[in-house]
Simulated assay, not measured.
Amino acid sequence: MKLFSERCILLCVFGLGNYLWAQEPDSSSALKSMIEAERAFARMAVTHGVRDAFVENLSDDAIIFRPGPVKGRPVWQERKPLALMIRWEPEYVDIAASGDFGYSTGPAEYLSVKPLAPAIGYGYFISIWTKQADGKWKVALDIGTEAPKLENTDIKIHFPFGADVKKIFSQTNTETEKTSLIGFDEKCNKTYTKNKTVEAFLKNVAPEARFYREGKFPVSEIDSIKLLLSKMADIFWKPIDGAVAASGDMAYTYGSYKIQSEEKPEEGYYFRTWKRDNTEQWKIVIDVLSPVPPQK
């Protein structure tokens, strides 16, 4: 895949003054090293096979969804090599102030190992990366959705302005912060259930948020997010676990959800990446629903 233009493009998203860089980050930054870890992971999936790439790049306690959350390395270690190749490329990335916790997301393409065979599926991946004690980046959580074919393969890397700048931060108690955030996630559900309005949910969504739904492209415009949420008025979710960066400014949660609908009831698992805004409030920047396949 082509990657990015050489010029630096400043994009204004949603017209709300939230700027993203569409260029390579500073070569000495933690963000750049995380991106390169993602790209190395993708290359290994092509050169050594998908199974070996996941076994090598997942952390010991990494979470994947099959369809519910499970420890990922044992699952991949027990799998036989796949007659399948996956190609992917990071498109949007961000990193915590601590420089050891971030996320990467972008399009993926599923191919047969037969030469010149057409793609057999498309999707989007979302990965949480954490830096290990030895300085290596490993995937702490991996989830994805199916999506239509992406016509534009000129993938440019985007990240929030300043994400590749080293920051001074105060160490936080990650367990305390995690407990607090899980409680906040649950509180959001109670507030949404009580009010049954999109506005109640949007108060917790960052302007730059991206929403992922099965079979669709990611939604990243506020009006489109409103429309998406309006179709799921009766959704209930319950957090299971999560993690918070050492700097306390980025985190994730995941859990189960259920959509009560006479026409199309659904249940499955959700994943959210959170980031503190300039008022220190947690806001959702990534929201994923991964439905459990219906029983046949």
Rank of each mutant, 00 (worst) to 15 (best):
T273H: 08
E266F: 05
I286Y: 03
L150F: 06
A245R: 04
I286D: 04
A209E: 05
M1P: 14
P115C: 05
D185K: 02
S224E: 15
S127R: 14
S170E: 14
L82M: 14
I225Q: 10
M1W: 09
E56A: 14
I35H: 06
Y92V: 15
E6N: 13
Y270C: 02
F101T: 03
A62P: 05
D154T: 09
V75C: 01
V50I: 13
Q171C: 04
T105L: 05
L58P: 02
I286P: 00
A200H: 04
P218H: 03
S29Q: 08
L228E: 13
Y110W: 11
E214Y: 03
W237D: 00
E151G: 00
E263K: 14
I64L: 03
Y19I: 15
G121Q: 02
D94T: 06
A96E: 00
V113C: 07
K203I: 10
V46W: 05
W274H: 07
D223L: 11
S127N: 15
D154V: 09
Y122P: 03
V292R: 06
V285Q: 01
A133L: 10
Y92A: 05
E208W: 09
S98A: 06
L16S: 12
K2L: 10
N195H: 11
D52P: 05
T130I: 08
S247E: 02
L227E: 12
N18F: 11
E151P: 00
L82H: 10
V13R: 12
E214M: 09
R7Q: 11
A209L: 08
A119D: 08
E56T: 15
C8V: 13
G135T: 02
K190V: 09
T179R: 08
G102I: 01
A37Q: 04
K196W: 06
S247Y: 01
L84I: 11
S33W: 04
W237V: 02
A30K: 11
K187E: 14
Y192C: 04
P115Q: 08
V288M: 07
S27H: 08
N173Y: 04
P293M: 02
K226E: 12
Y122H: 15
N173L: 05
E24S: 11
N204C: 08
F271G: 02
I143P: 00
E175H: 09
L16V: 12
A97E: 11
D94A: 06
P69S: 01
W274Y: 10
T253W: 01
A42E: 11
A96M: 01
S112L: 13
T174M: 09
L20I: 12
V113L: 11
S5F: 07
P160A: 05
A96L: 01
Y122A: 00
E267D: 13
V55Y: 08
D100Y: 02
N189F: 15
Q295A: 09
F169V: 03
P115Y: 03
K203A: 12
C12G: 12
Y254T: 01
K196A: 11
C12Y: 05
C8W: 07
I284S: 06
K32Q: 15
W274L: 04
I157L: 15
F271D: 01
G248L: 01
F184K: 12
I225M: 10
F211D: 05
K238I: 04
M250H: 01
A147T: 04
